[in-house]
């Protein structure tokens, strides 16, 4: 893999506009790369899965599907989700940094990342973090890079945290229940989704616990579902968990949306999105810090020109 990383760094070089292309499932997030931007592919393949350490080292160009099938052989999984896992790549999911339906149980994308090997705007190989499940050695550049849309460095290889596959994962759907009461009553649910009418609940863990929760908390209002519902649209909004309560009146129930109860993410199409304004943007002081970081990490502005993390909430092309 060292050779693959070297070759990745060589392709990126130290001059000219450049972007890493993964599966392009979210290519428009934050804006389209400027015309003339060179597209480079990240190394592909699982380098090593170490079940006893619960870590996996993987090329950033590897699809989530390939990662899943490799890690599954050791009885584990990585808490990353994408709506098209056969196309979405690890590097792409981390660059965008947005999780899927199971965030309530799994936590945010960034918490699965232990080490990132990236290439700087100067074309040099940069490692941050460590292949260890616990580590506070030095500044946490991994968290800075996850969700940065490749505007600070281009990631070629990562080490991710693995978790044991639970004994069971089951989904339930019900109508008319108060999703907030359901979420509060469940102990560490995987997911609670709500579209204003139906509530879907994902539970994962020991079978005995799932059955107990289904009986005592979900009750007769819920019936088993094969899977969670499909995405209602390609856009998303980030609200405080409490603000979700107002969605039926703000977004309306005739425009499709799906809220992650207990989290605050709302998946939606354009019709609903325009009625659910983003939470207030960060202050000018925060954007000053963004500019100061960009000036230092990419002074010539060659990494993903045309893309900006400030455009994500506006929903450009998500």
């Amino acid at each position: 893999m060292k050779d693959a990383l070297r070759s990745f760094a060589d392709q990126i070089g130290s001059e000219g506009p450049v972007a890493v292309a993964g599966g392009k499932t979210h290519w428009g997030v934050g804006g389209w790369p400027a015309t003339g931007t060179k597209e480079v592919a990240a190394p592909v393949g699982v380098v090593a899965h170490e079940p006893a350490e619960m870590i996996v080292r993987v090329g950033a160009g590897t699809t989530l599907e390939e990662l899943r099938s490799t890690v599954e052989e050791g009885g584990q999984f990585v808490a990353l989700e994408a709506d098209d896992p056969s196309k979405a790549t690890v590097g792409g999911v981390l660059a965008v940094g947005l999780g899927g339906y199971r965030r309530l149980g799994w936590g945010p994308v960034r918490d699965s990342v232990l080490e990132m090997t990236s290439v700087t705007a100067g074309g040099e190989v940069l490692r941050s973090g460590a292949p260890l499940v616990k580590n506070v050695t030095g500044y946490d550049l991994c968290r800075l890079f996850v969700g940065s849309l490749g505007t600070l460095a281009l990631t070629g290889e990562v080490v991710l945290r693995c978790r044991p596959i639970p004994e069971a994962e089951t989904w339930w759907v019900g109508e008319g229940a108060d999703p907030f009461a359901v979420a509060a009553g469940l102990y560490r649910p995987l997911s609670v989704l709500w579209n204003g009418i139906h509530t879907w609940v994902g539970l994962a863990g020991y079978r005995v616990d799932i059955e107990d929760q289904a009986r005592t908390v979900l009750g007769r209002a819920f019936r088993p579902a094969e899977r969670p519902p499909p995405l209602p649209g390609r856009l998303r909004r980030s609200l405080t968990p409490r603000d979700l309560r107002a969605l039926p009146s703000t977004a309306g129930v005739d425009r499709p949306w799906l809220a992650q109860v207990g989290v605050g993410v709302v998946h939606c199409g354009e019709a609903a999105a325009e009625r659910i304004g983003p939470v207030g943007p960060p202050s000018s002081g925060v954007w000053d810090l963004h500019r100061a970081l960009k000036e230092r990490f990419d002074p010539a502005g060659r990494l993903n020109p045309g893309r900006s993390v400030s455009g994500v909430a506006a929903g450009a092309g998500v």
Binding site: D140, G147, S238, L239, T240, G264, P281, W287, H290, A313
Partner: peptide, 17 residues
Amino acid sequence: GIDPEPEGLDLRGAFVG
């Protein structure tokens, strides 16, 4: 932020530690 996906880089994550 209290919302799950605040706009911009994860400066919170960079600051912690």
